Amino acid sequence: MAIAQINVARFRVAKNDPANAAFMAALDHVNAMADVADGFIWRLVGDGNDATDIAAIPDDPDFVVNMSVWRDVPALEAFAYRQADHRAVLTRRAEWFDPMEPSMALWPVADGHIPSVAEGMAMLRRLGQNGPGPEAFTFRWWREAQRGS
């Protein structure tokens, strides 16, 4: 089993506004870091080298989606929270995006499975409606489940 993640956000101002320039400029580099990270398997890519042009919600061009698949939760967590360049962008999230809950979900996928955006959005809805559990969860839930096992 591998682990998939979806991370969504809505820009505070239009995606192409100069206020978002630092975020957009960081994408290629951070994505390149993900591509070579230990445990990385796949990431969603649109027409460019990122997924910012993929319309996860029709008629909402400022809603962006990021999805990826990793070997396991520790590999994803190491990249998300300990890779310096990703962490630098993550700490500035509030500058660019409106608060949204949930904005991220993790779920197990069979080895070789590439999730669709629709699958990811469904997992995000499941997490929002049912809370975390084995089918859709957060890093916090996963860590607590590991301590309990």
Rank of each mutant, 00 (worst) to 15 (best):
M1T: 15
M1W: 13
A2N: 15
A2W: 12
I6H: 12
N7E: 03
N7Q: 10
V13D: 06
N16I: 11
P18R: 13
A19T: 12
F23Y: 15
F23N: 13
F23L: 09
M24C: 05
D28V: 10
N31D: 02
N31T: 03
N31Q: 03
M33L: 14
V36E: 15
I41G: 01
W42Q: 00
L44T: 10
L44A: 09
V45E: 13
D47V: 11
A51K: 02
A55L: 12
I57Y: 13
I57P: 03
D59H: 13
D60S: 12
P61I: 09
D62E: 05
F63L: 04
F63H: 13
V64C: 05
V65R: 01
V65H: 01
N66C: 07
N66K: 09
V69S: 08
W70I: 03
R71M: 05
D72I: 07
P74E: 11
E77R: 08
A80H: 07
R87L: 02
V89E: 09
T91K: 13
R93Q: 05
W96L: 04
F97Q: 15
D98K: 14
P99H: 03
L106P: 09
A110R: 15
G112S: 06
S116V: 12
S116F: 03
S116C: 06
E119G: 00
E119D: 13
E119V: 00
G120L: 01
L124C: 06
L124W: 04
R125M: 11
Q129W: 05
N130F: 04
P132M: 09
A136T: 06
F137H: 11
F137C: 07
R143S: 07
R143E: 07
R143H: 13
Q146E: 14
R147N: 07
G148L: 08
